[in-house]
């Protein structure tokens, strides 16, 4: 998938610079070759994981080579599904990641628009404070955060899993910059068109920020889905585990030697929803990673 988009990108480039076609075609081929090579390098471990996940654990205890030869088994996946909580965990992950994504977009958009377009006292100082948040590592605040949520008795709730992650300095910064780049005259035209401030935000400005929303939304969702530390700390009841924490909890003590196939199946299983998401939003993810622009 990343392959085809790389090819079309370089194809556009070569069309733009028509003219010395031959040398550019050669350059394109070289680039393509390089991309294919890198893609293979990236794919090999994944394919290996996939292969291992279909092998019986006792075979793997002796050797982890020969992933392409029999015997194969679906037992590892069956074991995952047999763990009665796995669908609860998936649901929890969907609720937490989805909730975090939606709320992050709401909060960051509102905050970004506020910083970009309204005047209020101490705006500069407050914005600087928000940006200072970029420099605070998550691990540094885990303990106070844990205590805070313990004090208000929120652990083992969705709120506890979602709320701490809504403070996203990067998201606020991204949206602020994006809204600043929206031409002021468009909003002024809307003012003359009798639109209220809220209407201008919702109907004129917000639709223009969809590329930025997609970027932020995708990053947030991925980060939230893969998050491990905070759910591990906050959720102590198995029915409140997210998928990452839940799967980890099913691992036996000697999984590295006795349950490699099961371990690999878990990895594939946990990554599956993200893969599906990627298939649906491939185009947006590529733009999100490649950077966004207004207009």
């Amino acid at each position: 998938m990343s392959l085809s988009s790389a090819r079309s990108a370089s194809g556009t480039a070569s069309r733009v610079r028509a003219g010395r076609m031959d040398s550019h075609q050669f350059g394109d081929r070289l680039l393509l070759g390089l991309v294919i090579l890198l893609a293979i390098l990236w794919t090999v471990p994944l394919v290996w994981v996939l292969g291992l996940s279909f092998k019986p654990n006792d075979v793997l205890m002796h050797s982890t080579g020969g992933i392409l030869s029999a015997p194969f088994t679906l037992k590892n996946y069956a074991d995952i599904l047999a763990s009665s909580n796995v669908f609860t965990w998936i649901l929890n992950s969907i609720i937490v990641s989805g909730g975090q994504t939606v709320l992050t977009l709401v909060v960051c958009s509102l905050a970004g628009y506020g910083f970009a377009r309204t005047e209020f006292p101490f705006k500069g100082v407050i914005f600087a404070l928000v940006l200072a948040g970029l420099a605070v590592p998550e691990q540094a605040i885990v303990i106070p955060l844990f205590k805070m949520f313990a004090d208000i008795n929120l652990h083992n709730t969705y709120a506890a899993l979602i709320l701490p992650r809504l403070a996203v300095p990067f998201g606020v910064f991204l949206m602020t910059q994006y809204f600043r780049a929206v031409p002021r005259e468009i909003e002024e035209a809307a003012l003359l068109d009798n639109a209220s401030r809220l209407k201008i935000f919702l109907v004129v400005v917000l639709p223009l920020s969809i590329p930025a929303q997609a970027t932020l939304g995708i990053y947030t969702f991925l980060a939230s889905w893969n998050d491990y530390l905070w759910p591990l700390i906050s959720a102590s009841k198995p029915e409140m585990f997210t998928l990452t924490v839940g799967l980890a909890s099913t691992q036996m003590n000697f999984a590295q030697s006795e349950g490699i196939g099961f371990l690999m199946a878990q990895a594939i299983f946990a990554g599956l929803p993200i893969l599906i998401l990627y298939l649906f939003f491939q185009r947006h993810i590529v733009t999100a990673v490649a950077g966004t622009t207004v207009r």
Binding site: E188, A189, L191, L192, P207, L208
Partner: peptide, 19 residues
């Protein structure tokens, strides 16, 4: 407010709603 003054304005950059 601008909308209630009975004027319409044409901007140098046109300022059309892009979407």
């Amino acid at each position: 407010p601008p909308g209630q003054r009975g004027v319409a304005m044409v901007f140098q950059s046109y300022a059309l709603y892009p979407h």
